[in-house]
Design a protein around this nucleic acid. Structure first.
Length: 616
RNA sequence: GGGGCUGUAGCUCAGCCGGAUAGAGCGACGGUUUCCUAAACCGUAGGUCGUGGGUUCGAGUCCCGCCAGCCCCGCCA
C-alpha cells in the first residue's frame, strides 16, 4: 500500500494547495510547509487512511478545523485521480478526514501482487518513499553477534545474533548490499593472560590443534582471569605476553591462531543451527590501523594526554567534578583499547573502496549497557571527520534476557547459560511436546520427521520470543511461554502456515504456496463480498509498509506483531467464510487469499530467520 | 554525584510523526462444532498508562521535577 499512500499524499497536498493557495505558499516560503498529516486509519471504521492536518492548521489559518477539512475534501472531490482511488472523503469528529479506498482498487492491488515473489515489497532503490531512489544503494554494515575467542557463546550473545541476523535479512531483502560482520574479540589483554596461564599448566594446547576442548579452555580462561586479578607478577607476565603477540612473536602468534581456529569451529556449530551467515572480521583485523587513528586524532588537535593516557575529551558529557569525561584511545602503558579499535573499525567501514568498505550505514547490535561507549565513539568519529555526509551511524541497543526473578538469566547453580544448552533444551522440549501430541492423536511419524520438526520448532521458538518484544526492553525468558501453541509464539505462526498451506493443497490447483511460486491459473479478477475477506485483503496489503518500517526503525518486533495479527485476521476469515465449498468466482478468489496469506507468513518469518514447515 | 534505559490489565508485553473510546496474548469466567478449520472463533470481567506539574485544539506518547528498578561513568569489551 505504500504506492497508494504515496499517491494519496500527493493528492492531499494538491488539494491543500488549491484550497489555501496563499497560506501554502507563505508556509513554504517560511520553510514550514503545511502537512496534510496522512496516516493509516486508527480504527477500521474510519476507513483505510486518515488525514489529521486540518486540526493542526486551525490556529494557523484562523478557521475552524472542520471548515478547513471541508475545503480540502471539496478539492479532493474535484481530483479525478482521487475519485478513481477513493470513496468520497468524509469529515469526522473535530476535523479528521477519513479516506476509504474503493474495494475494486484493493482487489486490483492484491491481484497485481499474486504472481510477484516479493509480494509487492519494492527494493529500496525503487521505493517512492526514498529520496535517493536513483542512487545506487550504498552498502550497509550490520555488526552483530561478536563473541570472544577462547570463550563459549552464552545467552549474552543470543540477542545480538538473532536481532542482527533479522535486520540483515530485511535490509538484504530491500536490496541493500549488506556486510554482516562478526567483530569477534580476538585480541587484547585476555590473550595475554590465557597464553601465559596455558604455557604453565597446559603447554600442549598452544602447539597442538585441539589438544584440549573448548570447555576446558573456558575453565583455563577463568583461572587465568582469577590469577590476573590476584597476582601482580602474573599480571606483568601477561602484559608482556600481549606485547609479544602484538609484535608478531611466532610462538605467541601460533598459539593465538590455534585458539582462534578452535573457537571459530565451535561458533560455527551454533551459527549453523541458527542458520546465520557471518563474515568474521575480528578486532585483530584493525590492529595495523590503530597507530594511525591515534596519530590522526593528535594531528587534528583532539588528543590530550592526561595521567599518561591518550584521551579525547567529550563534549556534553561531564563526570563527577563537572569536568568533561574522556574517551581513552591510548593507555598509559602505550597500548590501545577497544575504543581505539572501534574508531579504527568505524573509519575503515566508511572509507572508500580499496581502503575500506565504502558503507553508507553502520549498524551496531549490542546490549544497551554499551550506549554511552558508542555515543562517545560516534562523537569522536564525527569530530574527526570520519563520518561521511549522509552516512548513518546507529547503535541498535537491546535489553537483557532475564530469568523469572527479573535478573540476568543464570543456571540454577548461578552460572552463565551456555547458548548450546539453551538451544538443546528448547529443542528437547519441543520434541517431548511433539511426541506427546502424536501419541494423543494416534499419529505415527518417522524419526526424521520428528527430529526435523522438533528442531525447527524449538529454534524458532527461541528466535521468535526474542524478536517479538521491543528490543530496547529486557524480557523474561520462559520456555513454557515461547513454546506455547497459542498466543503470539512461533509454534502458533508455524501452525498457521501449515494449516493454510493444507487448505490451498486441498484446493487442487494452487497447491504450491512457496514464495514466488508460479501461480496456478489465477483468476483474472478477484471478487470479494464478505467483510472478513476485505479485512484480510487490507491486512495483506500492509506488508510492504511494515517491511519499510523495520528497515527504518530497526525494530523486528513490528514484523512479529504484523505476522501475528495477519494470522488472526486469517483465522477470522476462515472461521466465517467457506473457501473450497464456495461457488465461483468466490472460490478461486478465496483460494488466492489463502495462498497469498501463506506466502506472506513464509516470507515474513523467513526475514526473521525462521524457516517454516509443510507439516507438523 | 553525572548520564542512559525502564515503569501501561492478575502475569508477559504492544502502542508508529502527538490524534477519535488505551490494545494483544496468557490466565479467569461464559459461549460456538449436521457446514473446508478447534493449535480456532465469539463474548465478559480486569486500567489513577509510577507520580506531580507544563506545552497543545488534543498527551501513554513531547518538556521539567520527583519516586522505584536496572545499567554505564579513565586506561576490560
Amino acid at each position: 500500500m505504500r504506492r497508494i499512500a504515496h499517491a494519496l499524499e500527493a493528492q492531499l497536498c494538491t488539494a491543500l494547495e488549491r484550497a489555501f493557495p496563499d497560506e501554502v505558499a507563505a508556509a513554504q516560503q517560511a520553510g514550514t510547509p503545511l502537512d496534510p498529516q496522512l496516516a493509516p486509519a486508527s480504527q477500521p471504521e474510519f476507513g483505510d487512511f486518515q488525514a489529521n492536518g486540518a486540526l493542526a492548521l486551525a490556529r494557523r489559518l484562523k478557521q475552524p478545523p472542520r471548515t478547513i477539512a471541508g475545503a480540502i475534501v471539496e478539492q479532493l472531490g474535484g481530483d479525478p485521480a482521487f475519485v478513481e482511488l477513493c470513496e468520497p472523503a468524509e469529515i469526522a469528529g473535530p476535523g479528521f478526514i477519513n479516506l476509504t479506498l474503493k474495494p475494486q482498487r484493493l482487489a486490483e492491488e492484491l491481484r497485481a501482487r499474486l504472481g510477484d515473489g516479493r509480494l509487492g515489497v519494492l527494493s529500496a532503490a525503487d521505493d517512492p518513499g526514498h529520496a535517493s531512489s536513483a542512487e545506487l544503494l550504498a552498502p550497509v554494515i550490520v555488526d552483530f553477534s561478536s563473541p570472544n575467542i577462547a570463550k563459549e557463546m552464552h545467552v549474552g550473545h543470543l540477542r545480538s545474533t538473532i536481532i542482527g541476523d533479522a535486520l540483515a535479512r530485511v535490509l538484504e531483502f530491500r536490496g541493500y548490499p549488506v556486510l554482516r560482520l562478526n567483530h569477534v574479540g580476538d585480541w587484547g589483554t585476555q590473550f595475554g593472560m590465557l597464553i601465559t596461564h596455558l604455557k604453565q599448566v597446559a603447554p600442549e594446547a598452544l602447539t597442538t590443534a585441539d589438544a584440549i576442548d573448548l570447555g576446558d579452555l573456558v575453565a583455563f580462561y577463568r583461572q587465568a582471569k582469577a590469577r590476573f586479578d590476584a597476582d601482580a607478577a602474573f599480571q606483568a607476565t601477561a602484559r608482556e605476553e600481549v606485547v609479544k603477540l602484538q609484535s608478531g612473536d611466532p610462538v605467541s602468534r601460533r598459539a593465538w591462531q590455534l585458539l582462534c581456529e578452535q573457537s571459530r569451529r565451535e561458533f560455527q556449530q551454533i551459527y549453523d543451527r541458527l542458520d546465520i551467515r557471518l563474515s568474521e572480521r575480528g578486532e585483530s583485523f584493525y590492529n595495523p590501523l590503530l597507530e594511525t587513528v591515534v596519530a590522526d586524532l593528535q594531528a587534528l588537535g583532539l588528543l590530550v594526554t592526561d595521567a599518561g593516557a591518550g584521551c579525547v575529551f567529550l563534549e556534553g558529557v561531564k563526570g563527577k567534578d563537572g569536568q568533561p569525561l574522556p574517551l581513552i584511545v591510548r593507555k598509559s602503558d602505550g597500548g590501545f583499547n577497544y575504543a581505539t579499535t572501534d574508531l579504527a573499525a568505524l573509519r575503515y567501514r566508511f572509507a572508500a573502496a580499496p581502503d575500506g568498505d565504502g558503507a553508507g550505514r553502520l549498524i551496531y547490535v549490542t546490549d544497551a549497557g554499551q550506549a554511552s561507549h558508542f555515543a562517545a565513539v560516534f562523537q569522536v568519529a564525527r569530530r574527526a571527520g570520519w563520518v561521511p555526509v549522509g552516512g548513518r551511524l546507529e547503535h541498535v541497543p537491546f535489553g537483557l534476557v532475564q530469568g523469572d526473578d527479573g535478573k540476568k538469566l543464570k543456571t540454577r547453580s548461578g552460572d552463565t547459560v551456555r547458548l548450546k544448552d539453551l538451544l538443546d533444551e528448547a529443542v528437547d522440549r519441543a520434541e517431548a511436546d511433539l511426541r506427546r501430541r502424536l501419541a494423543e492423536e494416534g499419529r505415527t511419524e518417522d524419526e526424521t520427521f520428528i527430529q526435523h520438526t522438533a528442531t525447527t520448532v524449538g529454534i524458532a521458538a527461541v528466535k521468535y520470543a526474542d524478536l517479538s518484544t521491543n528490543r530496547i526492553t529486557s524480557y523474561q525468558f520462559s520456555f513454557d511461554r515461547m513454546l506455547a501453541l497459542a498466543g503470539n509464539t512461533a509454534p502458533y505462526l508455524l501452525y498457521a502456515v501449515v494449516r493454510i498451506a493444507g487448505i490451498a493443497r486441498k484446493g487442487g490447483a494452487g497447491a504450491d504456496t512457496a514464495v514466488g511460486a508460479p501461480g496456478p491459473e489465477l483468476p483474472a479478477e478477484l471478487r470479494f463480498s464478505e467483510p472478513q475477506e476485505w479485512d484480510l485483503v487490507r491486512e495483506l496489503l500492509k506488508f510492504d509498509a511494515v517491511i519499510a518500517e523495520v528497515e527504518e526503525e530497526l525494530l523486528p518486533n513490528r514484523l512479529c506483531s504484523y505476522l501475528f495479527e495477519l494470522s488472526q485476521v486469517f483465522n477470522r476469515f476462515y472461521d466465517k467464510v467457506p473457501v473450497l465449498k464456495a461457488e465461483e468466482p468466490s472460490r478461486s478468489s478465496r483460494l488466492a487469499l489463502c495462498r497469498f496469506t501463506a506466502a506472506t507468513l513464509k516470507l515474513g518469518l523467513g526475514l526473521l530467520g525462521i524457516p517454516t514447515l509443510e507439516r507438523m
